[in-house]
């Protein structure tokens, strides 16, 4: 699988994403500077986490005007896979590729910790290796992850099964206590109506290999591979 990882000024999870796809899963990865155009032949594009443009104005608000984003929008319109993680999710929202916005966490704190999310829809190209209702432990690291949208949009997103992950307790209960940031309806990740663009606040690339003590996030990347009929190649790291 050919993966493109976009690098914005201020991205800081770009190499983690490269590492997971290339070194852990044995796929081909191209790093794409935000001023370049999207190269031909990509199967999926990753918008990584970080603080693009220092989060100036609003998170993701300026990155969405980066030259590469025209190509990313076109890529998404063609129905191809785009995943935005954390700041990548915020950029997808600002770019209008996903509905809604991120508000400041209700606690005002930058929150960096493991959380549990429930897989609300396992019949997607990003979650097909999960069970419906499965609880994943994946870390979050953000100050602006408080998902908000208007009631009409929210109703549409829910009716269309576009809510993919919701914050929950370790045993899968979606409660106010399990909501780390005040997100509407405990939303941690949503997909577009066509099912080819996913945004999620938790960082699956930080929980995708044994040595990190948590492999739950790997299921997201394996699902993307499965959507292309691929499986992970022998990891370069085996036996290291």
């Amino acid at each position: 699988m050919n993966i493109g990882v976009v690098v914005f000024p201020g991205s800081n999870c770009d190499h983690d994403c490269e590492y997971i796809f290339k070194d852990v899963l044995g796929q081909s990865v191209k790093m794409i500077w935000h001023k370049d155009t999207l190269p031909a032949g990509l199967d999926a594009v990753v918008l990584p986490g970080g603080f693009s443009y220092g989060d100036y104005l609003r998170t993701g608000a300026i990155a969405r005007f980066s030259p590469v984003m025209g190509g990313v929008k076109e890529f998404a319109r063609e129905g191809r896979l785009v995943i935005g993680i954390c700041n990548g999710f915020q950029i997808l929202l600002e770019a209008g590729l996903l509905p809604g916005v991120m508000l400041r966490n209700t606690s005002l704190n930058f929150i960096c910790k493991d959380v549990y999310v429930k897989v609300e829809n396992a019949a997607t190209r990003f979650t097909n290796r999960c069970e419906s209702g499965q609880v994943l432990k994946i870390p979050i690291a953000h100050a602006d992850g408080n998902y908000y949208t208007d009631p009409v949009t929210l109703a549409g997103v829910k009716a269309n099964a576009q809510v993919i992950f919701r914050y929950c307790t370790a045993d899968g209960k979606v409660t106010a206590e399990a909501n780390p940031n005040g997100s509407l309806d405990n939303i941690a990740g949503i997909m577009n109506a066509d099912g080819n663009v996913l945004g999620m606040m938790p960082h699956p690339e930080r929980s995708a290999e044994t040595v990190l003590g948590n492999e739950d996030g790997r299921l997201i990347f394996l699902s993307m591979l499965s959507a292309f009929g691929k499986s992970e190649q022998q990891s370069r790291l085996v036996g290291v």
Binding site: L57, R58, E94, L103, Y148
Partner: peptide
Amino acid sequence: KLLANTVI
């Protein structure tokens, strides 16, 4: 287009 996000 930029300075305000009119959703919020």
